[in-house]
């Protein structure tokens, strides 16, 4: 009787080992993209990190139900979006006011760095509904079709939002470039 229990315990812990390995592989392969996506969704480093951790905790609990490895990304994004939405249900005051957020600013070394810093501010300033599909496309390389599926939107709507997002960024960049030229000149 004891021997049987022992055998069972061993097989359980070896199941756990393989689960642990799958989990580690999943985290290593996806955490950077997922964190960046969370960051652009939330625009606060520490809240983003908390939501990402919460997301993986939930992922761990239902890792067994994840059969298709390809679906892992989309699955994680879905959990993360749900976690983020839950944050708003929980406390309204977690809402980030964009004016108070200092977007990660690297040193103003050269024109490219300057442009990236500028771009980050502009990206953070985009309307949520433009920024989210854009980030799915930029970070995860999703097609319009995939974004539509992930966000449960019509594909045309997604394409319009992507168009507006880039259009606004481009125009704002050009305007700020011109401003800089004027002040420099």
């Amino acid at each position: 009787m004891f021997a049987r229990n022992k055998r069972k315990a061993v097989s359980v812990s070896s199941d756990m080992m393989s689960k642990q390995k799958r989990y580690e592989a999943l985290v290593n392969a996806t955490h950077a993209d997922l964190y960046r996506y969370a960051y652009w969704l939330i625009r606060d480093k520490s809240i983003a990190e908390g939501v990402v951790q919460e997301t993986y905790l939930r992922a761990w609990k239902s890792l067994d139900s994840l059969q298709d490895q390809k679906a892992a990304k989309s699955w994680l994004i879905t959990i993360l979006r749900r976690e983020n939405a839950r944050r708003f249900e929980r406390k309204q005051f977690d809402l980030v006011d964009i004016d108070e957020v200092s977007i990660e600013d690297t040193q103003h070394g050269n024109e490219t760095e300057l442009e990236h810093a500028e771009l980050r501010k502009l990206m953070a300033g985009l309307n949520d509904e433009y920024r989210e599909p854009l980030m799915l496309q930029i970070i995860f390389g999703y097609s319009g079709e995939e974004i539509a599926q992930q966000l449960d939107l019509n594909k045309n709507t997604v394409m319009t939002r992507l168009f507006r997002a880039r259009n606004q960024l481009k125009e704002a960049l050009e305007a700020s470039y011109e401003r800089r030229q004027q002040t420099n000149g």
Binding site: L57, W60, K61, L119, I138
Partner: peptide, 29 residues
């Protein structure tokens, strides 16, 4: 423009985040 957006989107990932996440998973189990 897209290359610039892509580069700008790559905010630094907090150091040790992956280890913290993995650790947290084992702890929860």
């Amino acid at each position: 423009l897209d290359a610039a957006i892509s580069a700008a989107s790559k905010v630094p990932v907090p150091e040790g985040l992956a280890s913290r996440i993995i650790w947290q998973g084992s702890i929860s189990e």
